[in-house]
Write a protein that binds this DNA or RNA. Structure first.
Lengths: 179, 179
DNA sequence: TATTGTTATACTCTATAACTATA
DNA sequence: TATAGTTATAGAGTATAACAATA
């Protein structure tokens, strides 16, 4: 799950708050078209774990990804990256370690710290995941002409630059959460 | 979580299988650029639930989305859409109902069936979610010039058509899983 | 007998709080 | 005293298997 904020409990009546809304200016049809692609892209991306071997849970897979990104994080850093608290990350590592995907090691500098790294098998799993994602993207791109691909990459680059500008401005947001 | 296949248990040594790989033809830099944007897009999309009121869990939110898409699915149809088994969906509905987000009703045609629909509060929550996603996309698009937006929508439309062709060809895949 | 949904049981995942070890 | 991590406990989320009700 990975959220820090308290959630609605089963015995809790629930709260109020409309909120929502957004800036005008951008035509609705453009927004809708981009939304549709984003939605499909998110699906394409998340489907890459289908048939992965061994079939770890999405949560464990996400932890493997986070560890791969950081190389050798300590447990606190890993928890932060997952948007979880150290306790949860510790328990998750228990299971990952039991599954043979990660290894816990004592840090040399500060003996309180525990370094988490991927095992050989964990690295293999991560490679398979990234390979599958790349393959999925390639399969779609292969259907486009080189000229179309050129236009696509130009447009996406523009979008990504805009997104980064936007992202930099709204850093008061909460945790990461790849969910 | 929502997967049907057996997962690696904590007491299970784990399996083998390299796999991965993909079709050549498409240049690596193009693939990598698209991947980067897809990754960011998936993140943008999944972050829309930040600060939602009431703060339901991602799993419950996903169920709300599925119910909203279908209108009034029976429990089995909902489970199928979530990539879960009826038992899990039933338990999930217990919590959603307790939280006041959905309502269970007896079907008129077949008295074995249970129809699941959003409560007023559930619909409000769903509206807020879609509103937030739309706003997030708008904010990014607002940073682009109208000409850039035109190019973007053309490129995305091409990509989406290619994806749909691809998707139609690989329908032997398992469940949906938005994870 | 087949289908729809629920309940019993067990495991993963997560948070809060209390604890241990090191700094 | 503060920090890094673990353990105890409790609840959400899920699957398998056994069950009830309807077709």
């Amino acid at each position: 799950m990975t959220q820090r904020r308290p959630r609605l409990s089963a015995d809790d009546p629930a709260g109020e708050d409309p909120a929502g809304g957004g800036a005008g200016e951008v035509p609705d049809d453009v927004t809708a078209a981009v939304e549709r692609v984003l939605s499909a892209a998110a699906l394409l991306w998340s489907r890459a774990d289908q048939g992965l071997e061994p079939a770890v849970s999405p949560i464990q897979l996400r932890a493997v990804e986070a560890i791969a990104r950081f190389g050798r994080p300590n447990l606190g850093r890993l928890a932060e990256e997952l948007g979880a608290i150290p306790s949860s990350a510790s328990r998750l590592c228990d299971r990952l370690e039991a599954a043979g995907l990660v290894v816990r090691e004592n840090a040399v500098a500060d003996r309180r710290e525990i370094i988490v790294r991927l095992s050989k098998q964990g690295e293999r799993l991560y490679s398979e995941l990234t390979g599958r994602r790349r393959a999925a993207v390639r399969e779609v791109l292969a259907q486009l002409s080189p000229a179309s691909r050129g236009r696509l990459i130009d447009a996406l680059t523009e979008f990504d630059l805009a997104r980064e500008r936007q992202d930099a401005g709204s850093s008061e947001a909460v945790g990461s959460r790849t969910a």
